[in-house]
């Protein structure tokens, strides 16, 4: 399980870190912890453009995004 914790980072760091996780771990599920709605949108858009499914869970300190590659 790959986890990227970008809570507190502002745009575009969450996208950069998630992209890095995708590139370094092809075909792996990635969990991303973000704080703001903007980061949630941006990371979701990146994931969808790469064919990942996105499951969002709201948490007291932001959002947990479960990103699964196609077929998983």
């Amino acid at each position: 399980m790959i986890e990227v914790d970008v809570r507190g980072f502002s745009c575009p760091i969450p996208v950069v870190r998630t992209k890095k996780a995708f590139d370094e771990n092809p075909n792996e599920s990635v969990t991303v912890l973000v704080e703001s709605m903007v980061s949630k949108e941006n990371v979701s858009r990146l994931a969808q453009s790469r064919g990942y499914s996105v499951k969002v869970e709201e948490r007291p300190d932001g959002y947990k995004l479960q990103l699964n590659p196609a077929g998983r």
Partner: peptide
Amino acid sequence: TRMCFVGGWRDIIMVRDFY
């Protein structure tokens, strides 16, 4: 919309995102 007049150019180069 999160409009940004530098971010627009950045995202094309960085992640090929045209939003």
